[in-house]
Structures are given as C-alpha cells and as structure tokens.
Write a protein that binds this DNA or RNA. Structure first.
Lengths: 241, 241
DNA sequence: ATTTGGTTTAACCATATGGTCAAATAATAT
DNA sequence: ATATTATTTGACCATATGGTTAAACCAAAT
C-alpha cells in the first residue's frame, strides 16, 4: 500500500495556451511561457495571498510543469515580487494617464478628479485593495513597495484635497468637518465596492439587488461619490450637478 | 544530522493562564481551558482565516498542548465552527440590544439607528468584516452561517431604510438616487473603517493623521455617516444637525 | 550528423502541519 | 487506600507543499 507522493500536474489544462502560442509567432515561446506563469501567478496570489497561494495551482493554471516556475522565477517569494511589481507598474501607468488627462477647476471638480482617478485604477485591478489589506494584516513584514504605493495613494488624496479645501474654508463655504473623518469618507466610498464585491457577488441575487460591477456601475459611482462627498462638506444649497 | 520533526510548544506562554485559573475557582478548570482555547482560536482564525490559521499557534496562545485542541474540539474545522458560532452569538446579542434601545422617528433618525447598530456591532468585532470577506473570497464553500448573517445584515438595512424612504419619496423631499448606489454608500461608509484599519494602523503615522479607532472615533463617525448619507439623499437645505 | 546550450520533465527531498494514540497524570468515587 | 474515570502529554503518522536535481528533450549552430 505504498502511496507515491506525486505532485505532477493534474493535466486537462494547457489547451488555451497552445492556441495562444500558435496564433502569434511559433519561435521563441519562452517569453510567452514566462508571461503565462506571471499571469497565472497574479491570479493565484491576488486571490489567496502569499501564504495561501499554491505553486502547483499556478503551474496548472499556466499549463506548465511546476519546476518551470522555479526555473524562471527562482522561488515563490521572487515570483510574488514579480507579480507585485507588475501590478504596481500597471497602476502607476493608469495613475499618470489620469493625472495628465485632468485639470480640475473648483472644489467639486477637484473631488471628482480624485475619485475618478482611483475608481479607474481599482476597477482595472478590482481585487487589489482586498489583497493589499489582507497581506498587510497577515504578514509581519509586508512587501514595502505595496505600502509605499498605498501611502502615496492617501498622501496624494490628502494633500490635493486639503489644498483645495483651505481656500474654500477661508471663504466660509465649507463645513467644519474633521479631516480624518472626511478622508475616511472618501476612502470608504471609493474602496467600498472593491472590498464588498466578493460578498455582493454571492448575496446580491438573494437580495433582488441588480449589482453588477461593470463600467456603467463605476461611471455612475464616480458621480454619486463626488456628489455625496461634496454635499457632506459644502454649507449652502449650491451643491447640485 | 538527524533533525527531529518536533511540534512541541515553544513554551514561554501560559503564565497568564495560570493566574486566571487561580483567581477564580481551583476545581473544574476544564471549562476554563476549553474557553481559553476558543478565545485563542478566535484570535488566530480571525487573523489568518481557516486555512492560514495554525493549530500549534492556537495551542501556544492558549498555553496548552496541541492535542488538547483535538480533545475538546475534535478537528480544525469543528473548532472553526465553534469560533464562528461564538462570534455570531455575540453579534446577535448586540444586535438585539440595539434594536430594543431605539425607536427611530423620521428619516434621519432611521438612518442614524441603522448606522449606530452596525457601527456598534463591528466596533466590538473590528476584525470580523475583513475576515468575512476574505473567507468568502478564498474558500469555495464558506460556512453558510456566516453568509446568512451577512444577508440579514444587508436585508435589514435595505428593508428598513427603503420603507422609511418611500414615504419621503412620495412627499418629494428625497432625491432620486439609485437604490443600489445608496446601499453601497451606506455599507461603504459603515464598513470602511474596519476594512481600512490594518492599513491605517501602519501608514497613519506616516501621514500625520491622528487616526485612533477608539470609542470616540466611532461615536463621531456615527454622526458623520448619518449626516453624509442624509445629505446625499435629501433635496432641500433642511439637512443640518 | 553531431555538438551545444537552453528548456522541460519526473522523481525525489525536507519541512510544516493536521491529526492519532497509548501512556502518564490528576481527579473522583468506592 | 484503591479503583475508576477524566484529562493531559509526548511521540508518532500521513499528507501537502516548496524546492532540488539529474536526466531527457529540442532547437540551432557547426
């Protein structure tokens, strides 16, 4: 009754990969494989975190032998780092695009710009916020790069918003809300859908709530958040799009 | 160079437990130990999730031998269930207390009651929301009890709020906001601090933000959220505490 | 065709971890 | 005191999993 402790792939995958391989160029496919691994790893790490992710699952998803992961990325940690870097690059690109495309005029427009920027970033990486928080919560020493990015996220919000606010405050058109509460409002409203998505996907139907997290929802959400935040700090009734 | 694969406790714990044991009654301490285990397990499960939690870590935290966990709770899954049940009971108790203590009058008071109820529940179990979402996200078949509880959470919000809303809508004093957006606003604002807490604990200092998640913060938060939500749906300028 | 260097694979190892068990110990009843 | 029952412990097992390695494979150069 000797049970071999095999770790071979459960096979049944990899068809999709071959398709992709043939469609492009048939030579030098090592590049592709490296990328497939990265993509598969991203899925797995984002969903289960560093500890929860399984190398075998990544290999299966990518349709390659497990040893290849080590061949290309050395270790689980290195692969994880590569994934993080990849995501952060993507986020930074979106961030700069957004920043270049906007020139806010006035307080409300300023709020809208901030909200738009981050809703766009995270709707392109909807699982990232939850992943981030979970990794910070569980690992004693989370990858510093992630933290830096998040510090930038909030730092930028804070600076930009409060700069625009101070002039309004002096004019007396803005309420005297505590800054940490205002920031918590914005962060909560912006990040809420991404935190709640896994839950809503399951219980949404049970509630007769037509909650689809698609482009139109987020577009609508940007306006709602902007209005909500603006109305929460403006004094008189000029708040109305 | 034979390395024994020991799993014995790393010792250095358990002092605190002995203290507690002596302080109460010296006989029938099995009850206590069972409870110590449950408390330790709750800490561990809430922080790392079902898969991430380590039985040895729970044993160490409780200051007992690992086998005792199995003696009292049979298996990891059973212990997990016990933990969940314990939390849900606690939550339900708080919920009923809150419900009994309030009799809302008018729309704004209704909003305040809902917000108060859930802020109180979760400020007593601040790690629960994040834990919940993560468990739902990672495990294919999450414990149904958790989901039921959360469905109730939102169902109640929805019913109660929209019941109060419809009368206001007919009076024309309330904006025509999409219900799913309103619900998302409330959920985001209420749950935001609990989702963001692990992050803020670390990056707060780096931002000169005095964010302490204590009683006074949550008390303040209840009013802010109530105002914010109310202002976001009311039409004229009667929104002002 | 043969060599060469990069790529891929199966088999294997070391460790962590959930779980079991028989012996030891403490508590309780007789 | 002694027997019986409940509790506690250390040693051990089975499996999962990250990682290694030597051999096989394969494409391109000679």
């Amino acid at each position: 009754m000797v049970k071999p402790n095999n770790q071979t792939k459960k096979s049944g995958e990899g068809v999709e990969i071959e398709k992709r391989l043939k469609s492009d160029d048939n030579s030098q496919n090592s590049q592709n494989i490296e990328e497939f691994i990265l993509i598969a790893a991203q899925k797995e790490f984002i969903k289960f975190g560093l500890k929860g992710a399984r190398m075998q699952a990544i290999a299966d998803e990518a349709g390659v032998n497990k040893s290849l992961l080590h061949y290309y990325y050395r270790s689980k940690d290195k692969l994880y780092d590569a994934v993080i870097e990849n995501i952060l690059n993507k986020i930074q690109r979106t961030y700069k695009e957004q920043e270049a495309a906007h020139k806010p005029e006035g307080l409300k427009d300023n709020i809208r710009m901030i909200v738009t920027t981050y809703i766009n970033i995270f709707s392109e990486n909807p699982d990232f916020p939850l992943f981030l928080v979970h990794e910070i919560k569980t690992s004693r020493k989370p990858v510093p790069t992630i933290l830096d990015m998040f510090i930038n996220f909030i730092s930028y919000m804070k600076e930009n918003l409060f700069a625009g606010l101070s002039s309004e405050i002096s004019k007396g058109t803005v309420k005297n809300i505590a800054p940490e509460q205002l920031l918590m409002n914005i962060m909560s409203l912006v990040l809420g859908p991404f935190f709640l998505r896994p839950v809503m996907d399951i219980i949404g139907p049970a509630l007769n709530l037509p909650l689809e997290f698609d482009k139109s929802f987020y577009a609508q959400r940007i306006e709602v958040i902007t209005d909500t935040v603006f109305n929460s700090i403006v004094k008189n009734e000029e708040g109305k799009a």
